[in-house]
Design a protein around this nucleic acid. Sequence first.
DNA 1: ATGAAAGCGCTAACAG
DNA 2: CTGTTAGCGCTTTCAT
Lengths: 313, 313
Amino acid sequence: MSTLRDVALRAGVSKSTVSNVISDVVPVSAGTRKRVEAAIAELGYAPNIVARSLRSRTTFALGLIVPEPTNPFYAMVALGAERAAHERGYAVLVANTECEPKTEAEAVAALIGRRVDGVIIAGVSQGSRIHELLLERGTPVVLAGFGAAGDERLGVIDTDDEGAMEQVVAHLAALGHRRLAFVRHHLDETAGERRAAEFAAAVARRNLQLVDAADEPTAIAAHNDALAIATIDRLERDGATVPGDVSVVGFDDVPLACHHRIELTTVRSDGREIGRRASQLLIDAVRAGGFVAHREVHAAELVVRSSTGRCAA
Amino acid sequence: MSTLRDVALRAGVSKSTVSNVISDVVPVSAGTRKRVEAAIAELGYAPNIVARSLRSRTTFALGLIVPEPTNPFYAMVALGAERAAHERGYAVLVANTECEPKTEAEAVAALIGRRVDGVIIAGVSQGSRIHELLLERGTPVVLAGFGAAGDERLGVIDTDDEGAMEQVVAHLAALGHRRLAFVRHHLDETAGERRAAEFAAAVARRNLQLVDAADEPTAIAAHNDALAIATIDRLERDGATVPGDVSVVGFDDVPLACHHRIELTTVRSDGREIGRRASQLLIDAVRAGGFVAHREVHAAELVVRSSTGRCAA
DNA sequence: ATGAAAGCGCTAACAG
DNA sequence: CTGTTAGCGCTTTCAT
C-alpha cells in the first residue's frame, strides 16, 4: 500500500506538495499538479484516512445507534442517515443495541474510543443516559425519531407523536369507540413510553376510557405496525374480527401495511427523511465545532385503511 | 481528552508501562498496575483507537456492504455480522448501496481509505467486481448470503438456493402444478440471478413448464417474501384467488410471513446466523493475516403454509 | 509555489 | 519489570 511519501518520491516533489494537491486548499502550479496526479494514478494511491484523522483530530466518522434493525422504520432512519453522511464524506459506525443497556454502553465506549465526530441515536432503552455521557465528552449528539427532555446541547429530530395520537384518537372517537387501549413493544424503548402517554392524554381530553388490551377494548392502537399486525393476528385467532369487533391502528406505515389482506390504518412517518436530516444537522454542527442544539418535529399523518371501523358495541 | 502521556505522568511511570497494563501482554508489577489503573479511572482515559490503528497497521474495523437495508433478511445479516464483530472488538462501517454500482464503488473507496481489515458483502449489483478490487488490495472479503464464481481467496457463506428451489418445485409439483413462474426483484442483485436459474433447473428436471408470470402460471415462486406478498396482492386485486387459482411461494420467512392473513409458504433462511458466521470467519482470517478462502452452504428449509394448494387446472 | 520539520497518540523493539 | 527511542502516514506552520 503506497503512501504520500511514495507519491512524492515518484513525482519528485515533497510530501507537503502532494498533500497540497490532494487537499486543494494551498495553490499548486499546474505542472507539478499534473505530475503528482500522474504519480497518484500510477501507484493507485489512496490517502490513509486513519493517519489523517490522527493528525487533524477529526475522524470524519459518525456513530449510529440503532435499537431494532429489524423494524423497517429504524432501517429507514439508518439508511437516510448513512447515505447523507457518505455524501458528505463521513463514514458511519453502526451499533445495533436491541435496547439492551449493556450493549448500549459497550457501543458508546467503542464510539468514544474511535473518536467519532458525532453520534446519531435512533432509539435507546428507557432511562438511558448515554447521550449525556457523549455530550460530557464534547461529542455532539442528535436523537433521531424520538425526543428527550433535557439537555440544551442535544439535537432532536422528532416525530410528532402528540399530533399523531390526537389524530388516531379523533379518528377512533369519530367511529364511536369509547373503550380504547394502547399496546407497547416489549422492548424498553423510550419512544414507546411517550407515545403511550400521548395516546392516554388524547383519550383523556375526550373523556374516553383507557383500558388494558386484555380488558375488551373496542379499539387498540399499537406502538408500531409490527405490533398492530401481531395484535390483529391474536384477536382473529381468538375468534374476534377486525375491524368488526375491534379496530386496530398501527404506527410507521411499513410497506406491508397497505397489503390488501391487511389494509392497516396507521400513522405514516418518514424515517428516511428523519435520518437524513439528523445526519445533516450533526455534520453541520461538527463542522462548526459545536453541539447541534436544535429541535424540530416532523409531522406524522394518519392513513385510514380498513383495520378500523364503526364501533359495534 | 486525556492521552497515554497524561496517564503516565499522573501515575509516575512511562508511556510504555501504561500501554503494557492496557494491552496486558507484557507483565507489570501489581503495584504499578494499581497506580496506573487508578490514574486511568481518575482521568476517564479511553485509548485512542485511531492512533493505535495507525501504529499497529490494523484498524480493528470491518466494512459491511448492504444492498437493501429495508429487506428484513439483509437487516438480519447485518445484525448478526455487526454483533459478532463487536463481541470481538471490531467496529463495523456500514454502507447501504441499494444495488447502485456507483454507490458500491464509492463505498469500496471509502472502506479502502479507512483501511478496514476486511469486508463483508451481503449483496451487490449484477456483474459487480468490487470484491476483486478489495482482494487485489489484500483485503479479505466474505460474501454473506449469496455466492459467486471464481476467486479462491474469497470467503463465501451461502444459502443453499439449489436445495431450496428443489424443495419448492417438488412441493409445487406434488400439488399438481405444471405451469410455473419465477418473479425477481427489480434490483439488479446477483442473488436473484442464481435463484431464478436454480428454479428453472429444478423445473426442467421434472419436465414442467417454465412460463412468464404474466402468462397464466398456476404457481409462482418469488425471489423473496416481500415480492411474494406483492404478488399475492396483485393477483387478488386482479380477481384471482391465492391459493385457489394460483399458488405463491416466497423466500426468507420474514416475521410477517406467518401472519394468519398471509400464511405464506416460503423458504426459511437464517440471516442472522449467516451474518454472524461471516463476521467470525472474516475476523479469524484477519487475525491469521490471510484471506478467508472458505466456502460453506447453509441449508434452507421449506415452510409450507397456506399460500400454496392443489392445482385447480 | 515548494520544502523541511514537527508532531497527532500510540505500540514495539531494545536496553537496562 | 520498566524506560527510552523510533516511527505509523498524514497535515501544518514556517521558511525559502
